[in-house]
Write a protein that binds this DNA or RNA. Structure first.
Lengths: 215, 215
DNA sequence: GACACTTATGACCACCCGGTCATACTAGGA
DNA sequence: TCCTAGTATGACCGGGTGGTCATAAGTGTC
């Protein structure tokens, strides 16, 4: 019994179960999600889910861990990229958008958890997301300052707040209706243009001006 | 029966009921909120709630309307304020913070509704919030461009996205733990400093540079 | 085929939900 | 005092929930 039982299943069934769970949580969040409904769609008995994961929360935890493992790869790739500081900042946005495009349901779960208190692992969830962002951006910004591309008097924490906040909001507006209608669901060319405008804001906020003193 | 019954109640009881409803929705959001629990704390019979509001959704609608009416005053005052374009932008942030400080539970409800689909009035709710922001910022930014304080080539919609997004995120980080720990719960002096840094970002993003052409 | 062991099943449980409604209470006019 | 209209009440309803567990169905070994 327990998680071993689940991981001994043939991969196809594992994937089907995971997929159904992601679907259910993405659609309804944690509390409104129904194990009954999920197993009905899935075509297996309810008892199995509890054999595998012990509880609804255990199932959610599994989905959570799986999601975290999915973002690690692209993030590492993005971290190792070369180039201008602003190119690299831009790349982190594009990486995020790729993830959202590839795993829209995981992103919906993240958004539902964001302000929904009483959700298990919420604190852990958010702390991890934030740590990833900070661990990615801190050295990048430090590099930028050292190279003189960024203002020397920059407050690192506030710069992270700026980038992180704007990017997160941009993703939200892009993928959720009614956050900022002008950005929702934009495709290639328009999207590219908006990203450029957004990056221009960030460049102006962070870049060292020619006349300003080097750090 | 109906809403008339409720509005014929003496003010004290009306307030106690409204307060309990706000408390419940702020703590649990719409779906997890429990009428049973609410009336137990309130010390009235469950039937009364349904006499007043017809349904849980009717109660929520009442809270919603009440909230909207509360924000209107300060917003109008802020809109009529005079001064430098950036002072006025800053004032809109401070106005928002005042509201959140005064009505933290209403803000919590707003946040819970933000990404929680399947909530009644969600679209209406968000559309109204956005329209308020746009109606406030559009003329302000147009003024700023005309006066030459803002870049002439500014894309209005993206400028609104920038300000709106950063301010909303700032409020979130300030009032919700784990969004951006460095900003959560800051008091007077530190808060002031962070607001200044935030406004500096916005100024750099939007302000016309001395060398740049006037619109 | 008999055995042990793991996995699958769904009827069942206690609990809570939003909502109803027959009944009891209350206040004011005749 | 009696009547009436408005209001308050909480037992009750159908339905859905997460979770359990006795039983059945596979699966591999000898």
């Amino acid at each position: 019994m327990g998680i071993n039982t689940f991981e001994n299943l043939d991969n196809d069934k594992q994937e089907r179960v995971l997929d159904a769970a992601v679907e259910e949580f993405a659609e309804y969040g944690f509390h409104q999600a129904s194990v009954n409904r999920m197993v009905k769609r899935l075509g297996i008995a309810k008892g199995s889910v509890f054999t595998y994961f012990g509880s609804k929360q255990g199932l959610f935890e599994y989905v959570f861990r799986h999601s975290v493992s999915l973002i690690k790869g692209p993030l590492k790739a993005a971290r190792q990229a070369e180039g201008d500081t602003f190119d690299r900042i831009r790349l982190s946005l594009v990486t995020g958008m790729d993830f959202v495009r590839r795993h829209p349901r995981l992103y919906r779960i993240y958004l539902k958890v964001l302000f929904q208190e009483n959700v298990p692992f919420r604190e852990t969830f958010l702390r991890q997301v934030r740590e990833y962002a900070a661990r990615f951006l801190t050295p990048l910004l430090n590099d930028g300052i050292r190279r003189g591309e960024l203002r020397g008097d920059l407050d690192l924490d506030m710069a992270i707040f700026l980038i992180d906040g704007l990017f997160d909001r941009f993703l939200q507006a892009w993928s959720v209706p009614a956050v900022h209608p002008g950005l929702h669901g934009l495709k290639e060319r328009d999207l590219e243009q908006r990203i450029n405008q957004l990056m221009e804001f960030i460049r102006r906020s962070l870049a060292a001006l020619p006349g300003e003193p080097h750090a």
